[in-house]
Design a protein around this nucleic acid. Structure first.
Lengths: 289, 289
DNA sequence: GCTTGTTCGTCTAGGGTTTGTCGAGAGAAC
DNA sequence: GTTCTCTCGACAAACCCTAGACGAACAAGC
């Protein structure tokens, strides 16, 4: 049982707002101390976090609250995840995901992913759970503090989930984007995420994946005529090694460089744009541009 | 439930136009908040996207709206399965798959795969459609008669399908097998197929994927205690390069070498068994042994 | 060529709604 | 006595509403 100041600190929402959300939307149902102080339960904290997730998704406060309350009620009844902690907040569930992947417990990881996707929007899960996890995994991999086996296992499960979300992204009538990684680049999960968000914003996505020769990208570009080509790499060297081909490609369709390997200098040299930041946000901006 | 600003951001259509489409064509039927704000549902968002697609197709706004509304009403039920003969033979449908992948038509390929899996058993599809296709693709890739882009595209779609079939294979109470590819080996689709068939025969599958150091396999083996370890490679060199580690691994759990790279000589040297033939049949035999 | 009418995206003006924030005064906790 | 919390009321910025007008594009008719 938390008092309002402590809850406010934990979730990063001011006390005034917490009281407003309670009186305006009935989001919170704190008990009261003898002296009239609000006493919040774990459920209340969870609901606040749900609310925050929905706000981040762009819902108005009233709608976000309604969704959070509905979710809380549904979540309490249906316990589908074996021995999952009852807490339904993003942080808790993504922690459960982390543990399952760490322990190489595949069914558990799938169940947690299912639960996440049923309770939050795809964008939220990608932005606030999977991307942070992948970043963390990458860092620990560089430090050598996670075994290759675990890294492979986690990548396999996450790739499966992402591929599922990507189903059908090549269809529809929206604007067409072609996605690929340049030669030597073996990491494409962030690019997958980018493509998923793009397709959910109405785009049609063509996907060539890791380690694709630029000549092949050029070939496909001239066949399929995408209105944007997006290349992603983790280091600038991947782009630097194929500058002439990239310049040629940039002459055929607007070219966008993404990922940590995309630098302003390279883009200027090639005649391309650079996309910065996390793949979810940048895909949303990109889709709207 | 979205307010107009958020919907506008998501679909990239100005608020003015959204209101115009509502009043002029009845495209949208938002609920209203207490204060009179429009609240859009998911259906509304879908209709806007349909409308956009038709506009991009060159329809006039009024016709596009009419089409979008009609589609929304009919579209929920009718899942379009593209023109296939009613009683599809394996050969015909796998040819349709081949064509769709050749043309890089992702939605079509997914639809054909769905159809295959709904009409035939998983084993049949894997043995008689996907494996022959992958073999053929591999041969044409060696000859250089298929572009890398197409090869990547087909692999991506098929991997997605296989990963879907593999969901949950790490659970259950059956005997536990650990699957991996040795260092340098980058092809794991056949091993995926092997694992899927194994899991459908009651086994529990642990999967480490391509290019896994044998020391990591050893580590996981000592943790998870599988009763079989299966390694797959396309050339004998992959195994030959790590014979000492493989011998050590063979001392911890019965080791099985599979794929074109598995030779009797190597197996004798290492103290392992060899698995020959196509992954579906060999997995069935393996599961029964 | 010119006029006329239609379609359709865009814009404005005036006014209401939503929502985070703040403060005052008073009581509770320690 | 200091810190925390309560309720109630107020406020401003952001957001959204209706109704109507405007203009570019296009087609038909004279």
């Amino acid at each position: 049982m938390l008092r309002i100041g402590e809850l406010s600190r934990r979730v990063g929402v001011s006390e005034h707002v917490l009281r407003a959300w309670e009186s305006r939307y009935g989001l919170l149902t704190p008990a009261r101390s003898a002296g009239g102080y609000r006493l919040y339960s774990q459920d209340d904290e969870n609901r606040v976090r749900l609310m925050q997730a929905h706000l981040a998704d762009g819902l108005a406060a009233a709608q976000a609250a309604r969704a959070a309350i509905a979710q809380g009620q549904a979540g309490n009844l249906a316990i589908e995840v074996p021995d999952a902690d009852p807490r339904a907040d993003l942080v808790g569930v993504s922690d459960a995901l982390r543990q399952a992947l760490e322990r190489m417990d595949e069914p558990r990881a799938q169940a947690v992913l299912d639960r996440l996707l049923s309770e939050f929007t795809v964008e939220t899960v990608l932005r606030d759970v999977l991307m942070p996890f992948l970043r963390d995994l990458g860092e620990r991999w560089e430090q050598g503090s996670v075994s290759i086996a675990r890294e492979h296992f986690a990548s396999h499960v996450i790739r499966g989930c992402l591929t599922n979300l990507a189903r059908g992204w090549g269809g529809g009538l929206g604007p067409h984007a072609l996605l690929a990684c340049p030669p030597g680049e073996m990491h494409d999960l962030a690019l997958l995420v980018f493509g998923i968000v793009l397709s959910r914003n109405g785009w049609r996505v063509g996907y060539l994946g890791v380690n694709t020769p630029i000549l092949d990208v050029i070939q496909v570009t001239s066949d399929a005529r995408p209105i944007r080509v997006v290349l992603s790499a983790t280091t600038p060297e991947r782009f630097a090694a194929v500058v002439p081909e990239l310049s040629r490609l940039a002459g055929m369709a607007p070219l966008v460089l993404a990922g940590p390997g995309a630098t302003d200098d390279l883009a200027r040299l090639i005649g391309a744009r650079v996309l910065m930041g996390d793949p979810v946000t940048s895909a949303q901006q990109f889709a709207a541009s």
